[in-house]
């Protein structure tokens, strides 16, 4: 399937349909090994204050160079549209391109997004030339509004961030996939490789995850499992599954049975 099934995002083509985060790893070396094992070409990063009392320390981008990877800065931790817009502008000024993952949190405990604020931040940033990828609930109407304001993709959650609960509402995702003219990327909630496969089997264009890999007992092995899960799910989707039937349908012929 080389080259014939690329994932297109913001005018660029990618071989991998897995986007990975860079948080929660033991160190930058492990982060890079996990990314390499995952095969991801797009990686998310957060924007934070430099530690001014010890600023000379190693930098994430030394290990995950923007010359090799597409850097997708996020607005994680923002609770208002204004904070998210400010963070996105800072990220762009730091010089890794126009992509931004908009995340406006509406609730501290569930980390569910504040949808009206997400739409507002996205609307402003699209006008400023950003390629906006919004983290959003698995709500078809919210996803449509985000597409209407010009988002480059929609990123519905499968389950709460970091929960590992897998795809809680495959039917909503199906509706979102059916209606969307932009890529649908499942963002958050994946726990294991079969969850990732399921997302792609449903017809999602890509899946974004962090904790499921970084929090696994063996992150590098899980990164590889996720790569295979995503590839298997995509092929399964393209191949077209058989319809579900209540009763059996024998695989072996009846003819030629012994008397």
């Amino acid at each position: 399937m080389d080259g014939e099934d690329d994932f297109e995002l913001g005018g660029r083509r990618y071989r991998s349909r897995l986007i990975v985060g860079t948080g929660k790893y033991a160190d930058f070396a492990e982060t890079r090994r996990a990314i390499d094992a995952s095969g991801a070409e797009i990686v998310t990063v957060a924007v934070r204050r430099v530690n001014v009392t010890d600023p000379g320390r190693e930098n994430l981008l030394d290990h995950v160079p923007p010359e090799i990877f597409t850097i997708l800065p996020n607005t994680a931790g923002c609770y208002t549209a204004e904070e998210a817009i400010r963070t996105a502008r800072l990220a762009r000024e730091a010089g890794v391109g126009n992509l931004v993952k908009i995340e406006v949190i509406g609730d501290e405990k569930t980390l569910f997004p504040d949808v009206p604020a997400t739409i507002e931040a996205s609307r402003v940033l699209v006008k400023e030339g950003f390629l906006v990828l919004p983290y959003v609930t698995d709500d078809p109407v919210a996803c449509r509004r985000l597409e209407d304001v010009g988002c480059a993709a929609v990123m519905p959650l499968a389950a709460p961030i970091g929960s590992g609960l897998g795809i809680r509402n495959p039917y909503n995702l199906k509706i979102i996939i059916e209606q969307s003219r932009v890529p649908v990327i499942v963002d958050a909630g994946v726990g294991c490789a079969s969850d990732a496969a399921r997302a792609l089997e449903l017809g999602c264009d890509a899946v974004l995850m962090n904790t499921a890999i970084a929090g696994a007992r063996d992150p590098i092995l899980m990164a590889e499992a996720m790569r295979l899960g995503v590839e298997a799910g995509r092929r399964s989707f393209l191949a077209g599954r058989i319809p579900r039937k209540l009763h059996a349908s024998a695989s072996s012929p009846i003819e030629g049975m012994l008397d």
């Binding site: 985060g21 860079t22 948080g23 929660k24 790893y25 930058f28 982060t31 998310t44 990063v45 957060a46 924007v47 934070r48 204050r49 430099v50 001014v52 930098n59 994430l60 981008l61 850097i71 800065p73 996020n74 994680a76 502008r89 800072l90 990220a91 000024e93 730091a94 010089g95 890794v96 961030i161 970091g162 958050a188 974004l208 995850m209 962090n210 904790t211």
Partner: peptide
């Protein structure tokens, strides 16, 4: 206000200025 990189050399700080310097860190 975000400061463009090319303006760093010519921009002089004054007492009481509030400066933020950010970078990329690990995140999801």
């Amino acid at each position: 206000e975000i400061l463009a990189r090319e303006d760093y050399p010519a921009t002089r700080l004054s007492a009481g200025d509030v400066v933020e310097v950010v970078q990329f860190v690990g995140g999801g």
